[in-house]
Amino acid sequence: MRRDLIFTLAAMAALLAAGLYGYFGDEPFYLTLAAKAAIFGLAGAGLNIALGYGGLVSLGHAAFFGIGGYAAGILASHARNYEPLMTWPVELAGTTSAPVIWIVAMLAAGLFSLPMGLLSLRTGGVYFIMITLAFAQMLYYFAVSWPAYGGEDGLSFYVRNELGGLQTMNPWIWFLVCYAILAVVLVLIAILTRSRFGLALTMARENPLRLANLGIGPKRVLLTAFVISAILTGLAGALYADLNRFVSPAMLSWHMSGEIMVFVILGGVGRLGGPVAGACVFILLEQVLGGFTEYWQFLLGLALIIIVLMGSGGLAGLFDRSGAKKGAAHG
């Protein structure tokens, strides 16, 4: 528990340091990268609730990431074109207010995750992976073929959405917004895992039969976790759309699901700060290795294999073991 906290604080400190370097070194590019890492960390933190705490291997979280992104893009584009979102039965206008967009993104992702979770949870193991993948791909092909919002080309919206009086187009401000949201979400997850629900979720992962035997339905517990997980990944999607001022079906594709899963596995499955560390290292590798070769993902794959073979637990696991060794040397 304590090592988990230290690791999380270390990952968050590293991310903040990257942001500060970008700000004081006057390198907006680094600030954008740091904001991207915060957003990917948030998407991973969402997936981690299903994958890490609930043991649900979802290969469909791009669906929620993309839904969040499209929620932001669609609402903003309607507001900017002064076209109502719908006129019947009630007239609804678009909006460029970021908090409203975040709430809509989270609601949309949560609503979509309900039937997806209900159906997927009827299965287990590899079938669960396949059904979640199928749901996400369904949305992907829908987005590609739906012309209203750009279809395959995606949807651009030029200016970031509004948050109070903040200069959201300022990379430093935008990084801080993303960083603050990530920090709040991590605190909420820490609270969740220590609650009654967290206890039930642990049992649902490690021994669902026993949980049922105690009179608690494991599926209800897992479905709740899946929906919470989707809501957080949806929020990350909305932030990501605003970061790029662009959404496209790529946010919904299975590559994206795989990447979110890589953040979690690289950083440490079921570890609070794991996805943040994973996202930071992922982006670092992308930048550093990507500078040497365009085949950097080959090297990323290699790094992933090594980390997984060195024992599950990812970077957080390595951190634990290095600490344990030091402790042994002192003792």
Binding site: S195, R196, V221
Partner: peptide, 9 residues
């Protein structure tokens, strides 16, 4: 029940 999310056990 178990559907309490905020209070630490």
């Amino acid at each position: 029940g178990v559907f309490h999310f905020l209070r630490p056990v």
